[in-house]
């Protein structure tokens, strides 16, 4: 599983990534997975789900679950502000396309990254599971953690976590 996430060294391909911030750290997701970015608006709670699932959002008639990445990663919770954004991602969950929203502090930039420059993720300990990391990119302003959204938002996985709670 892990070896799949590591880029092969002869990968010269350049991909675009959307970077965003969570508690002062930079994260990035592949831009092709991003469907749209919208401002935070109250969502409808879904009963009996883990706390990081904030609820369901009406995305032009489609019901989309919204996740708080801070809570997901065990970071400190903050009040949502006018700059809080919801990044709507179209992911692939076991060959089943899904749309999910993730809450981030702010969206920063779009970066062109050479896939070969992506370093494998080190072990962070308990809070951030490296299974969800595609790797790390070192930019001038600091480290950017690249998320593998298909794995990060794997709903079956979330359900498993929920059953442990």
């Amino acid at each position: 599983m892990k070896s799949e996430n590591q880029p092969s060294p002869n990968d010269k391909e350049v991909n675009q990534f959307l970077t965003f911030e969570l508690a002062g750290d930079s994260y990035a997701v592949e831009i092709l997975k991003v469907q749209e970015i919208r401002g935070w608006e109250p969502v409808r709670k879904i009963p009996n789900t883990p706390g990081f699932i904030k609820g369901a959002l009406n995305l032009r008639g489609t019901i989309v679950p919204v996740l708080d990445l801070r809570e997901r990663f065990g970071l400190e919770n903050v009040e949502y502000t006018p700059v809080t954004v919801v990044i709507v991602l179209s992911i692939n969950n076991n060959d089943h396309p899904m749309v999910l929203g993730v809450i981030a502090d702010t969206v920063s930039d779009v970066l062109d990254l050479n896939l070969a420059d992506i370093k494998p993720a080190p072990n962070f300990g308990v809070n951030i599971d490296t299974r969800y990391m595609r790797g790390i990119y070192v930019a001038k302003q600091g480290m950017i953690m690249l998320l593998d959204v298909d794995k990060l938002l794997d709903v079956d996985d979330l359900t498993k976590i929920e059953s442990l709670l």
């Binding site: 019901i63 679950p65 899904m98 999910l100």
Partner: peptide, 12 residues
């Protein structure tokens, strides 16, 4: 609308 399409079934 389906909740399952993008999430999963919720009991109740």
């Amino acid at each position: 609308k389906s909740l399952e399409a993008n999430y999963r079934r919720i009991e109740g």
